[in-house]
Design a protein around this nucleic acid. Structure first.
Length: 294
DNA sequence: CAAACGTGGAT
DNA sequence: TATCCAAGTTT
């Protein structure tokens, strides 16, 4: 009974109606949301909890309602507006992508998977997500939520492997409903199920619409026995130093001298972090010191 | 392919 | 307090 075509269709039905009743009313999901708004939401959501991007998204879209508006401002403004969302290269990428949209796509978000994928900061996931949510292209959207949902429902495993495998891509593709509209709804609905019910830490199997169809659940929710995801530390890393330096430069009114960073860490670590930030284009060295790119 | 890349809330 | 985890991408 498990993982047959009939099983999948039953799961589709239940998850789609669950989403219709319980999906969140996020601003980029509303009918009036533009491809640009959806694009910005996807970049902001990379490795970042949805709750944390809500405010910044509203601010961002009000200030830069379309790609041309953002492209008209210097990258420094995008980096400042990004504030503490993390991975500030995403702000730089967003600005560069807006510039590319103006230059190559008539100021619009391209409605094509390959053209999306060619934009800076857009990988396999984001291209599929923007394609599906903004343009109705029924590409499999395989994010961390979908991976976990499929691992449990279809494979009977508590969690997905540490990194996306070809087997998982194939599985996600096989699970796509044949009808394009259903496929696009399945993308957002299965992601939402993973975000709200089929969560990593304490899954809400008691309220899950497909608990009785879940291979993992039916097997008694066995513990994960595969390889663990490598632990990503932060304290003592260059990332920590880079973050502290960027915070100082963001909040300064003018270029700051290197001396402004001395309290952040040991001199050699500061030197390495600054060099990296300059190489990444997040920092610029002028006569007066370091500032954001213009 | 492994490792780098920010930040903060939850357990 | 320590670790985990969050709509990934790039090199």
């Amino acid at each position: 009974m498990t993982d047959t075509q009939a099983h999948r269709e039953q799961v589709h039905e239940r998850v789609l109606s669950w989403y219709a009743a319980h999906g969140r009313d996020l601003p980029w999901r509303r009918p009036e949301a533009t491809p640009w708004g959806i694009y910005v939401s996807e970049i902001m959501a990379q490795q970042t909890p949805i709750a944390r991007i809500l405010g910044p998204w509203l601010t961002w879209l009000k200030r830069w309602p379309n790609p041309a508006a953002l492209a008209a401002d210097p990258p420094a403004e995008a980096i400042r507006a990004w504030d503490r969302l993390g991975y500030p290269r995403r702000a730089l990428n967003l600005h560069a992508a807006a510039t590319a949209m103006v230059r190559d796509h008539d100021g619009e978000v391209p409605a094509d998977l390959d053209q999306l994928r060619a934009l800076p900061g857009v990988g396999e996931y984001t291209a599929a997500a923007v394609g599906s949510f903004a343009f109705g292209i029924p590409a499999p959207v395989v994010d961390t939520n979908v991976r976990r949902v499929l691992a449990r429902i279809a494979l009977g495993e508590a969690q997905a492997a540490p990194s996306l495998t070809k087997a998982e891509r194939d599985l996600a593709a096989a699970w796509m409903p044949a009808d394009p509209d259903d496929a696009n709804r399945w993308n957002v609905a299965s992601m939402e199920l993973g975000a709200l019910v089929c969560t990593a830490r304490t899954p809400g199997c008691g309220v899950c619409p497909v608990a009785d169809l879940c291979v993992w659940r039916v097997a008694g929710s066995p513990a994960y026995d595969g390889p663990r995801r490598p632990h990503q530390g932060y304290a003592g890393t260059d990332r920590e130093v880079r973050g502290a330096i960027m915070a100082i430069v963001r909040e300064a009114d003018a270029a700051v001298p290197a001396a402004a960073f001395t309290d952040v860490a040991a001199a050699d670590r500061i030197e390495r972090a600054v060099a990296g930030l300059v190489a990444d284009g997040l920092l610029r060295l002028s006569e007066q010191g370091y500032d954001l790119p213009r």
